[in-house]
């Protein structure tokens, strides 16, 4: 019955609010396909950020500055930026939510260490441009004009 109702329902259930997000350290994190990607602040330079990803199907990862300089912390394994990024993804989606979104066993999504230990991949270089562009796109939302118009289309949305 519940499947049938879910197919008939036009409302998606609300997601719980993340607890303890460290937005200053990890200002952007998102899922794309089976990949966790995002942006981590540099501890030393406010104009520099690290762009990183971790692919849960291959275990592959990479981290570089927005100017494509390879992260010095990558030495045969993931750097602390990637661990931090994966940890924030768990906070945003919750362990169970992340497991269902990425098709993982919920037993492996309780911590960044467990999640990253469950699949072994290797450093795979990718340009920072795509993740960085997604981040800049997200930042625009802090500046775009607000609206006072009726928006009937928002009646479909009480989640996210």
């Amino acid at each position: 019955m519940s499947d049938q109702v879910a197919r008939q329902s036009v409302i998606a259930s609300p997601r719980p609010s993340p607890k303890g997000r460290k937005v200053k350290d990890v200002p952007f994190v998102e899922l794309r396909g089976r990949r966790i990607q995002g942006v981590i602040s540099s501890g030393s330079d406010v104009e520099r950020v690290y762009c990183a990803f971790f692919d849960v199907s291959t275990g592959n990862f990479y981290c570089s500055t927005n100017n494509n300089r390879r992260c010095g912390g990558l030495g045969g394994g993931a750097c602390k930026h990637i661990t931090e990024l994966v940890g924030e993804a768990i906070k945003v989606h919750g362990a169970d939510g992340l497991a269902s979104a990425l098709g993982l066993d919920p037993a492996t999504t309780r911590s960044a260490r467990e999640l990253m230990g469950a699949v072994h991949g290797s450093e795979t270089k990718e340009p920072a441009a795509e993740v960085f562009a997604r981040f800049l796109n997200d930042l625009r939302y802090t500046e775009m004009p607000c609206s006072a118009e009726p928006l009937p289309e928002m009646s479909w949305f009480i989640s996210g």
Binding site: V5, S13, D96, G97
Partner: peptide, 8 residues
Amino acid sequence: MLPAPMLP
């Protein structure tokens, strides 16, 4: 959690 069908 991602948008999932509402619990009935």
